[in-house]
């Protein structure tokens, strides 16, 4: 890996935008994804446990459950990909709310591995509302801890990336002038998935505050308008912050094209788009081809 200072990285990304090219970032759960996207000139590689779980064939919501220490797992992922990633700047996740986290130690590890940026991943964003509602003492946990962590990382010259699950969090964080905000739509929904599955969340009103609106799976234009609106509001607070989007309807190439045709968003972070769906499709097609081989010619 190669370490970039915040300034170098900001400059590199700005050059893309000046050339009217969107910033392309990939969330890699295995080194092969990092390697192949690197060959095709990707701008940023994110290393998170969400991608790790997706590559295990599991739902990425496991990244927010007690099936491993996220900080240790992310470090393990960084080690695994340390040699395969050469030139592309890497952003690694830190689970800031972990009470056993020694932030300086984790940042130093990443620094030694030449990681250039930090993202608040896994984030307690998706469970914050329920925690606030159900527990009395939540002062020292939640999104606020993630904000402090990123502020400190930024002071140590790490490119800071804040992934926001809620609109108000995105705007709140913009005031801290991070280097990048990723609007995380939370659910990357398979094409053709039954929207009813996602409407189950009607039973949990707090989910309404999330960035992702199930209706957007059918109404992509509505989603694009909402994204442009949020983009403008973030940029009004912090014009220097790069704004990317991840997940939701943007796991389909056609919607990604519409995103850059109809909005000013700076780029896209592809996890399902660039890894999971590609692997599903390539392996599926290849298996079908192999299974249709006829054992003897003419039979």
């Amino acid at each position: 890996m190669k370490r970039y200072t915040r300034e170098e990285l900001r400059l590199k990304l700005q050059q893309r935008l000046d050339a009217k090219l969107p910033i392309l970032a990939c969330e890699a759960g295995v080194g092969l994804t990092a390697k192949m996207t690197q060959k095709e000139d990707i701008d940023l590689i994110f290393i998170t446990t969400a991608a790790m779980f997706r590559m295990r064939g599991l739902d990425d919501s496991n990244a927010l459950k007690a099936y491993g220490c996220a900080n240790e797992d992310t470090w393990e992922q960084v080690r695994r990909m340390n040699r395969v990633i050469r030139e592309v700047p890497v952003v690694a996740g830190i689970s800031a709310n972990d009470p056993r986290l020694v932030l300086d130690e984790q940042l130093s590890l990443y620094e030694h591995a030449h990681v250039s940026g930090i993202i608040n991943s896994p984030s307690v964003g998706p469970v914050q509302q329920s925690m606030r509602r159900d527990f009395s003492n939540t002062d020292d946990m939640g999104i606020c801890v993630e904000k402090d962590m990123l502020k400190y990382a930024q002071e140590r010259d790490f490119f800071s990336v804040y992934q926001a699950y809620f609109e108000h969090d995105a705007l709140d964080f913009a005031a801290q002038k991070p280097d990048m905000i990723v609007i995380n739509m939370d659910y990357s929904v398979e094409p053709g998935a039954n929207p009813e599955t996602y409407r189950d969340h009607d039973r949990f009103p707090e989910f309404y505050y999330r960035m992702f609106n199930p209706a957007w799976m059918e109404d992509v234009d509505g989603c694009l308008r909402a994204m442009q609106d949020l983009y403008e509001r973030i940029k009004a607070i912090s014009p220097e912050t790069f704004v990317l989007v991840a997940g939701g309807p943007f796991i389909e190439m056609e919607n990604v094209r519409s995103l850059f045709r109809q909005t000013d968003l700076d780029g896209i972070l592809g996890g399902v788009l660039l890894e999971e769906n590609v692997i599903r499709e390539s392996i599926g097609k290849h298996q079908a081809a192999l299974q249709s081989i006829r054992i003897a010619e003419g039979e």
């Binding site: 090219l21 969107p22 392309l24 192949m36 095709e40 692997i279 390539s282 392996i283 298996q287």
Partner: peptide
């Protein structure tokens, strides 16, 4: 059955993405 198909798939998707221009 895994490495080569995945390599080809990711390369193709990256090329499609790299062809996109911002408005």
């Amino acid at each position: 059955t895994e490495r080569i198909p995945v390599e080809q798939g990711i390369t193709q998707v990256m090329r499609e993405l790299r062809a996109i221009r911002k408005r």
